Amino acid sequence: MRWSEVPDVKPGPGEVLLRVAATAVNRADLLQRQGHYPPPPGASDVLGLECSGVIAELGEGVHDWEVGDEVCALLAGGGYAEYVAVPHSQLLPVPTGVDLRVAACLPEVACTVWSNLVMTAGMHRGQTVLIHGGASGIGTHAIQVARAMNVRVAVTAGSAEKLTVCKELGAECLINYREQDFVAEIAAFTSDFARQGADIILDIMGAKYLDRNIDALGKDGNLVIIGLQGGVKAELNLGKILTKRARIAATSLRGRPVTGPGSKDEIIKEVVAHVWPMISSGLVRPIVHDEVPIAEAASAHQMLDSGAVTGKILLSVA
């Protein structure tokens, strides 16, 4: 990976040109670097699924933003750069009280968490949610959003240090997956509740956890798969799903359409309406593990690859 000159970017119709202040590292970036996650058709082959910065130029037909506005953005690619062109509907205002650079770590986690836990699984007050990878960027954000909605939170993580962070953010059931069986722990945690088992499971493992996730679900529970770190193929016991009246959804964010049903535009509007007030009020805060100059992006990838990261890694550009 290297920082080098590329041709200038120009905004197309309906797009704006951002002068990037910072971007953030996501696991999808690691997969793309390894050749396992190519960008969708028409997207930049430069890494980077989110950024923050200042609007430098408006494309044709853009009237709801102005040059000089400070924003953050959800991208299909191109964030590891000084400038990026992005559809205007994928811009978000920087939440009140959040530094412009730090805002770069919010769009991907906020849109992923809200679209999956709330828009897909219907998370609401009084439920129990199990979040695998509780100390990740997605996990640390999901814990806070769930607690802000008065949802009980259980998490898995691989160390006592990471579980301590999850507890500080509001998680109540702390499961070290290296030492404990999360199915048994969820059963014990919910044993005194009217609905036993998890109402929702947010899963990053895929095949490896499929059967055990179904065991950990309560009646009418929702399993939402957003990652495949544990493989892509597994045997599915349909009898368990029928007995529990369970639902399984697998979703991704990057390849969604810009506008229309199930689009990024729909998700972003929901996030600005519901999550941004949580951030502005202090109920939810960005969790930044480290900030690295963009020219040293390779070291940031090594850091995330190591498994020692809690929250997000920022790459400062300007």
Rank of each mutant, 00 (worst) to 15 (best):
G139C: 04
A194D: 15
K269H: 13
K167P: 09
Q90P: 09
A110P: 01
V16W: 10
V151T: 04
V272I: 12
V165K: 14
S316N: 13
G231A: 00
K10S: 15
P13Y: 13
A297T: 07
V102M: 10
W114A: 11
A234M: 08
K269F: 09
G14L: 11
I313R: 01
I226A: 04
S159D: 03
A157S: 09
S136C: 05
E185M: 13
D192M: 14
C51N: 03
V20S: 03
P293Y: 07
K167C: 09
L236R: 06
T128L: 11
V317A: 03
L106Q: 05
P39Q: 04
F193E: 14
L202D: 01
D192T: 15
V224G: 00
A157E: 02
I214C: 03
P40M: 10
R27Q: 11
E60K: 15
G35W: 07
V309E: 03
K162W: 11
D99N: 12
A184E: 15
H88I: 04
Q32F: 06
R178P: 07
Q302V: 11
A43F: 04
I287G: 02
S52R: 07
E60N: 13
L174S: 03
G42N: 02
Y83E: 12
L238N: 09
I241P: 00
A198M: 06
G14P: 01
L217A: 02
P293H: 05
V62H: 00
D192Q: 15
L18R: 02
L304R: 05
V16C: 07
L74R: 01
C51R: 03
V151F: 08
K264V: 06
S159P: 02
M1D: 12
E70P: 08
G307W: 10
F182G: 00
L202F: 12
S89L: 14
L228I: 10
M1Y: 11
L238C: 11
L17P: 05
D64T: 13
I241R: 06
Q229I: 14
C105L: 10
H274E: 14
R212K: 13
G12H: 11
V292A: 01
G158R: 02
I294D: 03
G239A: 11
G218Y: 08
I186T: 02
I279L: 09
G260T: 09
P13D: 14
D199P: 03
T120R: 15
I287T: 10
D29C: 10
I268P: 00
G221A: 00
H132E: 05
I131H: 06
P293G: 01
Y209M: 10
P95R: 06
F189Q: 08
N176L: 05
H274K: 15
K167A: 14
R178F: 06
Y83L: 11
A184Y: 07
G282N: 05
K264A: 09
I226F: 12
E70K: 13
I214V: 07
V16I: 14
R178T: 02
Q229K: 14
V183M: 00
S299P: 04
Y37A: 01
A73L: 07
A216G: 00
V165C: 08
A187P: 00
Q180L: 10
I143M: 01
K10H: 15
P257W: 13
V271T: 00
C166M: 07
Q144V: 01
V183E: 01
D305C: 13
Q180G: 08
L106R: 00
V6P: 03
S52L: 11
Y37H: 02
P286T: 02
G134S: 04
V94G: 01
M123W: 02
D265F: 12
S316P: 10
W276N: 04
V129K: 02
K312N: 01
